[in-house]
Protein backbone atom coordinates (compact mmCIF):
# COMPACT_ATOMS: atom_id res chain seq x y z
CA UNK A 1 0.00 0.00 0.00
CA UNK A 2 1.52 3.28 -1.03
CA UNK A 3 1.75 6.32 1.18
CA UNK A 4 0.17 8.34 -1.56
CA UNK A 5 -2.93 6.15 -1.65
CA UNK A 6 -3.27 6.21 2.12
CA UNK A 7 -3.23 9.99 2.20
CA UNK A 8 -5.80 10.21 -0.60
CA UNK A 9 -8.10 7.71 1.05
CA UNK A 10 -7.95 9.42 4.44
CA UNK A 11 -8.63 12.74 2.73
CA UNK A 12 -11.72 11.27 1.08
CA UNK A 13 -12.93 10.08 4.48
CA UNK A 14 -12.45 13.52 5.99
CA UNK A 15 -14.31 15.11 3.08
CA UNK A 16 -17.30 12.82 3.64
CA UNK A 17 -17.36 13.69 7.34
CA UNK A 18 -17.00 17.37 6.56
CA UNK A 19 -19.82 17.28 4.02
CA UNK A 20 -22.10 15.43 6.43
CA UNK A 21 -21.31 17.88 9.22
CA UNK A 22 -21.92 20.86 6.95
CA UNK A 23 -25.28 19.56 5.85
CA UNK A 24 -26.13 19.03 9.49
CA UNK A 25 -25.14 22.61 10.26
CA UNK A 26 -26.74 24.43 7.35
CA UNK A 27 -30.01 22.56 6.73
CA UNK A 28 -31.67 23.74 9.96
CA UNK A 29 -30.41 27.29 9.29
CA UNK A 30 -31.66 27.43 5.70
CA UNK A 31 -34.57 29.59 6.78
CA UNK A 32 -34.24 33.33 7.40
CA UNK A 33 -31.33 33.26 9.79
CA UNK A 34 -33.48 32.21 12.70
CA UNK A 35 -32.14 30.82 15.92
CA UNK A 36 -32.70 27.09 15.57
CA UNK A 37 -31.98 26.31 19.20
CA UNK A 38 -34.43 28.73 20.74
CA UNK A 39 -37.04 28.02 18.12
CA UNK A 40 -36.96 24.31 18.68
CA UNK A 41 -36.85 24.70 22.44
CA UNK A 42 -39.95 26.81 22.10
CA UNK A 43 -41.70 24.15 20.08
CA UNK A 44 -40.76 21.54 22.60
CA UNK A 45 -41.92 23.59 25.53
CA UNK A 46 -45.20 24.29 23.77
CA UNK A 47 -45.86 20.62 23.16
CA UNK A 48 -44.84 19.80 26.69
CA UNK A 49 -42.03 17.58 25.59
CA UNK A 50 -39.44 19.33 27.69
CA UNK A 51 -38.88 20.01 31.33
CA UNK A 52 -39.35 23.76 31.74
CA UNK A 53 -36.64 24.19 34.33
CA UNK A 54 -34.00 23.06 31.87
CA UNK A 55 -34.64 25.59 29.17
CA UNK A 56 -32.91 28.69 30.41
CA UNK A 57 -29.80 26.87 31.52
CA UNK A 58 -29.69 25.15 28.20
CA UNK A 59 -30.12 28.26 26.07
CA UNK A 60 -27.31 29.84 28.06
CA UNK A 61 -25.12 26.83 27.58
CA UNK A 62 -25.75 26.91 23.88
CA UNK A 63 -25.17 30.62 23.57
CA UNK A 64 -21.82 30.27 25.25
CA UNK A 65 -21.07 27.15 23.34
CA UNK A 66 -21.93 28.41 19.90
CA UNK A 67 -21.32 32.08 20.42
CA UNK A 68 -24.64 32.77 18.76
CA UNK A 69 -23.91 36.49 18.70
CA UNK A 70 -20.92 35.87 16.52
CA UNK A 71 -21.01 35.81 12.68
CA UNK A 72 -22.20 32.66 10.96
CA UNK A 73 -18.78 31.61 9.70
CA UNK A 74 -17.35 31.67 13.23
CA UNK A 75 -20.26 29.52 14.37
CA UNK A 76 -19.61 27.18 11.46
CA UNK A 77 -15.92 26.82 12.26
CA UNK A 78 -16.72 26.18 15.92
CA UNK A 79 -19.24 23.58 14.90
CA UNK A 80 -16.73 21.82 12.66
CA UNK A 81 -14.18 21.87 15.47
CA UNK A 82 -16.71 20.29 17.81
CA UNK A 83 -17.63 17.69 15.25
CA UNK A 84 -14.09 16.57 14.67
CA UNK A 85 -13.49 16.33 18.40
CA UNK A 86 -16.75 14.36 18.65
CA UNK A 87 -18.37 16.97 20.87
CA UNK A 88 -22.01 16.70 19.86
CA UNK A 89 -23.54 19.09 22.38
CA UNK A 90 -26.54 18.64 24.68
CA UNK A 91 -29.75 16.75 24.16
CA UNK A 92 -32.68 19.11 23.68
CA UNK A 93 -35.20 16.77 25.27
CA UNK A 94 -33.10 15.41 28.11
CA UNK A 95 -30.95 18.34 29.20
CA UNK A 96 -28.35 18.12 30.70
CA UNK A 97 -27.62 14.77 29.09
CA UNK A 98 -24.92 15.09 26.50
CA UNK A 99 -25.52 13.63 23.03
CA UNK A 100 -22.11 11.99 22.93
CA UNK A 101 -22.80 10.29 26.24
CA UNK A 102 -26.21 9.02 25.12
CA UNK A 103 -24.79 7.59 21.91
CA UNK A 104 -21.77 6.19 23.74
CA UNK A 105 -24.02 4.25 26.11
CA UNK A 106 -26.06 2.83 23.26
CA UNK A 107 -23.31 1.91 20.82
CA UNK A 108 -21.96 -1.22 22.55
CA UNK A 109 -25.46 -2.74 22.54
CA UNK A 110 -25.93 -2.04 18.88
CA UNK A 111 -22.51 -3.21 17.84
CA UNK A 112 -22.79 -6.36 19.90
CA UNK A 113 -26.18 -7.33 18.49
CA UNK A 114 -25.63 -6.26 14.92
CA UNK A 115 -22.08 -7.44 14.49
CA UNK A 116 -22.84 -10.93 15.72
CA UNK A 117 -26.05 -11.32 13.73
CA UNK A 118 -24.63 -9.92 10.52
CA UNK A 119 -21.56 -12.14 10.77
CA UNK A 120 -23.66 -15.23 11.44
CA UNK A 121 -26.00 -14.27 8.61
CA UNK A 122 -23.05 -13.64 6.33
CA UNK A 123 -21.38 -16.96 7.08
CA UNK A 124 -24.57 -18.99 6.73
CA UNK A 125 -25.85 -17.10 3.71
CA UNK A 126 -22.55 -17.22 1.86
CA UNK A 127 -22.27 -20.93 2.39
CA UNK A 128 -25.86 -21.65 1.42
CA UNK A 129 -25.74 -19.39 -1.60
CA UNK A 130 -22.49 -20.95 -2.77
CA UNK A 131 -23.82 -24.46 -2.33
CA UNK A 132 -27.04 -23.61 -4.11
CA UNK A 133 -25.02 -22.78 -7.22
CA UNK A 134 -22.49 -25.62 -6.97
CA UNK A 135 -23.15 -28.27 -9.61
CA UNK A 136 -22.29 -31.25 -7.43
CA UNK A 137 -24.23 -30.13 -4.36
CA UNK A 138 -27.28 -32.15 -3.29
CA UNK A 139 -30.48 -31.30 -5.11
CA UNK A 140 -32.35 -30.05 -2.05
CA UNK A 141 -29.61 -27.49 -1.44
CA UNK A 142 -29.82 -26.27 -4.99
CA UNK A 143 -33.58 -25.84 -4.63
CA UNK A 144 -33.17 -23.48 -1.71
CA UNK A 145 -32.72 -20.43 -3.91
CA UNK A 146 -36.40 -19.44 -3.98
CA UNK A 147 -37.10 -19.56 -0.23
CA UNK A 148 -33.84 -17.71 0.38
CA UNK A 149 -34.87 -15.04 -2.09
CA UNK A 150 -38.18 -14.62 -0.32
CA UNK A 151 -36.45 -14.22 3.03
CA UNK A 152 -34.12 -11.58 1.67
CA UNK A 153 -37.07 -9.63 0.29
CA UNK A 154 -38.76 -9.13 3.64
CA UNK A 155 -37.28 -6.37 5.77
CA UNK A 156 -35.84 -7.66 9.04
CA UNK A 157 -38.13 -5.58 11.23
CA UNK A 158 -41.13 -7.30 9.69
CA UNK A 159 -39.53 -10.68 10.28
CA UNK A 160 -38.87 -9.34 13.78
CA UNK A 161 -42.55 -8.76 14.42
CA UNK A 162 -43.34 -12.28 13.30
CA UNK A 163 -40.71 -14.06 15.42
CA UNK A 164 -41.60 -11.83 18.33
CA UNK A 165 -45.22 -12.86 18.08
CA UNK A 166 -44.59 -16.58 17.70
CA UNK A 167 -41.52 -17.26 19.87
CA UNK A 168 -41.93 -14.43 22.34
CA UNK A 169 -45.63 -13.90 22.86
CA UNK A 170 -47.22 -17.24 22.00
CA UNK A 171 -44.53 -19.73 23.05
CA UNK A 172 -43.01 -17.44 25.70
CA UNK A 173 -39.54 -18.78 24.98
CA UNK A 174 -37.83 -15.42 24.96
CA UNK A 175 -38.38 -12.02 26.55
CA UNK A 176 -40.38 -9.55 24.47
CA UNK A 177 -38.25 -6.46 24.76
CA UNK A 178 -35.26 -4.72 26.22
CA UNK A 179 -31.60 -5.60 26.34
CA UNK A 180 -31.69 -7.13 29.84
CA UNK A 181 -34.27 -7.80 32.53
CA UNK A 182 -35.55 -4.65 34.22
CA UNK A 183 -34.26 -4.22 37.75
CA UNK A 184 -31.20 -6.31 37.12
CA UNK A 185 -27.95 -4.53 37.88
CA UNK A 186 -25.87 -3.97 34.81
CA UNK A 187 -22.68 -5.39 36.23
CA UNK A 188 -20.26 -7.79 34.68
CA UNK A 189 -21.40 -11.18 35.92
CA UNK A 190 -22.17 -14.48 34.21
CA UNK A 191 -25.82 -14.12 35.17
CA UNK A 192 -26.05 -10.73 33.58
CA UNK A 193 -24.40 -11.84 30.35
CA UNK A 194 -26.70 -14.84 30.06
CA UNK A 195 -29.64 -12.54 30.56
CA UNK A 196 -28.34 -10.22 27.83
CA UNK A 197 -27.85 -13.20 25.55
CA UNK A 198 -31.38 -14.40 26.24
CA UNK A 199 -32.76 -11.00 25.33
CA UNK A 200 -30.75 -10.76 22.16
CA UNK A 201 -31.92 -14.03 20.61
CA UNK A 202 -35.10 -12.72 19.01
CA UNK A 203 -33.78 -9.51 17.48
CA UNK A 204 -30.70 -11.40 16.33
CA UNK A 205 -32.87 -14.09 14.77
CA UNK A 206 -34.81 -11.51 12.79
CA UNK A 207 -31.63 -9.96 11.43
CA UNK A 208 -29.93 -13.28 10.75
CA UNK A 209 -32.92 -14.59 8.78
CA UNK A 210 -32.93 -11.64 6.45
CA UNK A 211 -29.14 -11.49 6.19
CA UNK A 212 -28.92 -15.15 5.24
CA UNK A 213 -31.25 -14.52 2.32
CA UNK A 214 -29.43 -11.39 1.27
CA UNK A 215 -25.95 -12.91 1.24
CA UNK A 216 -27.10 -16.18 -0.26
CA UNK A 217 -28.62 -14.36 -3.19
CA UNK A 218 -25.48 -12.39 -3.97
CA UNK A 219 -23.25 -15.39 -3.46
CA UNK A 220 -25.34 -17.56 -5.72
CA UNK A 221 -24.86 -15.22 -8.64
CA UNK A 222 -21.11 -14.99 -8.06
CA UNK A 223 -20.77 -18.73 -7.65
CA UNK A 224 -22.56 -19.44 -10.92
CA UNK A 225 -19.94 -17.36 -12.70
CA UNK A 226 -17.02 -18.76 -10.74
CA UNK A 227 -17.97 -22.42 -11.16
CA UNK A 228 -17.51 -21.99 -14.90
CA UNK A 229 -13.95 -20.67 -14.60
CA UNK A 230 -11.04 -22.56 -16.14
CA UNK A 231 -9.24 -22.91 -12.83
CA UNK A 232 -12.16 -24.84 -11.40
CA UNK A 233 -12.06 -27.23 -14.35
CA UNK A 234 -8.32 -27.72 -14.05
CA UNK A 235 -8.54 -28.25 -10.31
CA UNK A 236 -11.02 -31.03 -10.94
CA UNK A 237 -8.85 -32.50 -13.69
CA UNK A 238 -5.96 -32.47 -11.25
CA UNK A 239 -7.90 -34.72 -8.93
CA UNK A 240 -8.40 -32.28 -6.11
CA UNK A 241 -11.08 -33.23 -3.62
CA UNK A 242 -14.50 -31.79 -4.28
CA UNK A 243 -14.46 -30.12 -0.89
CA UNK A 244 -11.10 -28.49 -1.56
CA UNK A 245 -12.26 -27.19 -4.92
CA UNK A 246 -15.45 -25.83 -3.41
CA UNK A 247 -13.80 -23.96 -0.56
CA UNK A 248 -10.39 -22.93 -1.82
CA UNK A 249 -11.11 -22.41 -5.48
CA UNK A 250 -14.83 -21.67 -5.74
CA UNK A 251 -15.90 -20.04 -2.51
CA UNK A 252 -12.65 -18.19 -1.98
CA UNK A 253 -12.90 -16.45 -5.35
CA UNK A 254 -16.64 -15.93 -5.48
CA UNK A 255 -16.48 -14.36 -2.03
CA UNK A 256 -14.28 -11.42 -2.97
CA UNK A 257 -17.08 -9.09 -4.07
CA UNK A 258 -19.14 -10.33 -1.13
CA UNK A 259 -16.42 -9.17 1.23
CA UNK A 260 -16.51 -5.67 -0.17
CA UNK A 261 -20.22 -5.71 0.36
CA UNK A 262 -19.74 -7.04 3.88
CA UNK A 263 -17.56 -4.05 4.69
CA UNK A 264 -20.32 -1.73 3.57
CA UNK A 265 -22.93 -3.81 5.30
CA UNK A 266 -21.11 -4.00 8.62
CA UNK A 267 -21.08 -0.26 8.50
CA UNK A 268 -24.70 -0.09 7.49
CA UNK A 269 -25.93 -2.51 10.12
CA UNK A 270 -25.98 0.18 12.70
CA UNK A 271 -28.16 2.30 10.48
CA UNK A 272 -30.08 -0.36 8.66
CA UNK A 273 -31.47 -2.22 11.60
CA UNK A 274 -32.64 0.83 13.52
CA UNK A 275 -36.23 -0.35 13.28
CA UNK A 276 -35.45 -3.81 14.63
CA UNK A 277 -34.12 -2.16 17.76
CA UNK A 278 -37.24 -0.05 18.03
CA UNK A 279 -39.53 -3.07 17.78
CA UNK A 280 -37.63 -4.94 20.49
CA UNK A 281 -37.02 -1.78 22.57
CA UNK A 282 -33.39 -2.78 22.48
CA UNK A 283 -31.24 -0.19 24.25
CA UNK A 284 -29.12 0.51 21.17
CA UNK A 285 -28.57 3.48 18.94
CA UNK A 286 -31.74 2.79 16.94
CA UNK A 287 -33.89 3.24 19.98
CA UNK A 288 -32.05 6.44 20.84
CA UNK A 289 -32.77 7.69 17.35
CA UNK A 290 -36.43 6.66 17.49
CA UNK A 291 -36.99 8.37 20.82
CA UNK A 292 -35.21 11.46 19.53
CA UNK A 293 -37.48 11.54 16.48
CA UNK A 294 -40.55 11.19 18.69
CA UNK A 295 -39.39 14.05 20.90
CA UNK A 296 -38.11 16.19 17.99
CA UNK A 297 -34.75 16.15 19.71
CA UNK A 298 -32.75 17.56 16.81
CA UNK A 299 -29.34 17.62 18.43
CA UNK A 300 -29.61 13.92 19.15
CA UNK A 301 -30.91 13.11 15.66
CA UNK A 302 -28.07 15.07 14.09
CA UNK A 303 -25.57 13.49 16.42
CA UNK A 304 -26.70 9.97 15.61
CA UNK A 305 -26.70 10.70 11.88
CA UNK A 306 -23.22 12.14 12.10
CA UNK A 307 -21.85 9.25 14.13
CA UNK A 308 -23.36 6.72 11.75
CA UNK A 309 -21.92 8.44 8.71
CA UNK A 310 -18.53 8.67 10.38
CA UNK A 311 -18.47 5.04 11.43
CA UNK A 312 -19.51 3.90 7.99
CA UNK A 313 -16.88 6.06 6.34
CA UNK A 314 -14.31 4.65 8.72
CA UNK A 315 -15.23 1.01 8.07
CA UNK A 316 -15.30 1.53 4.30
CA UNK A 317 -11.86 3.10 4.50
CA UNK A 318 -10.49 0.21 6.54
CA UNK A 319 -12.00 -2.26 4.07
CA UNK A 320 -10.26 -0.48 1.21
CA UNK A 321 -6.99 -0.78 3.08
CA UNK A 322 -7.42 -4.48 3.84
CA UNK A 323 -8.86 -5.61 0.52
CA UNK A 324 -5.48 -6.10 -1.20
CA UNK A 325 -4.66 -8.74 1.41
CA UNK A 326 -7.64 -10.75 0.19
CA UNK A 327 -7.28 -10.24 -3.53
CA UNK A 328 -3.67 -10.22 -4.69
CA UNK A 329 -4.72 -8.73 -8.01
CA UNK A 330 -5.72 -5.48 -6.35
CA UNK A 331 -2.85 -3.39 -5.23
CA UNK A 332 -2.69 0.21 -4.16
CA UNK A 333 0.90 0.62 -5.25
CA UNK A 334 1.35 1.95 -8.72
CA UNK A 335 2.07 -0.78 -11.23
CA UNK A 336 4.03 -0.39 -14.40
Amino acid sequence: MSWNYTVKRVALFLIVVWAAASVNFFVPRLGTGRDPIREKLGQLAASGGLRQDGIEAMVKAYQVKFGLDKPLYVQYLNFLGDTFTLDLGYSLANYPARVGQMIGNAIPWTIGLMLVSVLIGFALGTLMGALSAWPSAPRFVRNMAVPLMTLSAIPPYLLGLIVLYILGLKLELFPLSGGYSPGRLAIASVDFYLDVLHHSVLPALAIVMQQVGFWALGMRGMMVTTSGEDYITLAEANGLRNRTIFFRFGLRNAMLPQLTALGLSLANVVAGQVIVEVIFAYPGIGTVLFQAIQASDYTVINGVVLILIMSIGLVTMLMDFFYPLLDPRISHTRQN
Binding site: D230, Y231, T233, L234, A237, N238, D327, R329
Partner: peptide, 14 residues
Protein backbone atom coordinates in the same frame (compact mmCIF):
# COMPACT_ATOMS: atom_id res chain seq x y z
CA UNK B 1 -2.91 -35.57 -16.23
CA UNK B 2 -4.25 -32.61 -18.16
CA UNK B 3 -2.53 -29.56 -19.59
CA UNK B 4 -5.30 -27.02 -19.98
CA UNK B 5 -6.44 -25.04 -22.97
CA UNK B 6 -6.76 -21.63 -21.42
CA UNK B 7 -3.65 -21.33 -19.33
CA UNK B 8 -4.46 -17.63 -19.00
CA UNK B 9 -7.18 -18.42 -16.52
CA UNK B 10 -6.39 -21.92 -15.35
CA UNK B 11 -4.66 -21.04 -12.10
CA UNK B 12 -6.47 -19.94 -8.98
CA UNK B 13 -5.99 -16.15 -8.96
CA UNK B 14 -5.86 -15.85 -5.18
Amino acid sequence: AMVPQGAMNSLNPV
